[in-house]
Amino acid sequence: MTEGLKFSEVEIGDDLPEEVPDVSLSSVTAFCKAASHIFDRFLDHEAAQKEGFPGAIVPGIMSQGLLAAMIHKWAPGSSIRSIDTVFRGSLLVDSQITMTGAVTDTDDESNLVELDLAIIAEDGRTGVIGTAVVQLLE
């Protein structure tokens, strides 16, 4: 882990480094067990197809967790005060998804920054959009 990102080092318009998180079946299964979120649509491609999905899908709450981890990688030592995600479309297990983020506002009295977040599916669809408020180191 790198040294913490300081508030003074951040400007509106900064992009977070893109991340391609692991949404393999083994990783999603591990998440589902940790979340006691055991549903076939997340754990079994064939079962998900029977429910009308192209394959097993990434749980919405996991996609939010992936974004939180991306924020911590960008700004080690920061504290996420809020994170708000909208699930717009399915993200498939065992696919390549890409997470993005950008700084949209800063508050120099409280060292808070606001971020826009998104997760893009392998086929280019936007699967998740969101925002977060993050407190950075002074």
Partner: peptide, 17 residues
């Protein structure tokens, strides 16, 4: 165990989690 497994599955690298 559950807290740890959740963070690891999300790809978390911050030792606080």
């Amino acid at each position: 165990t559950q807290m740890l497994a959740w963070a690891q599955a999300c790809g978390e690298v911050d030792p606080r989690f």
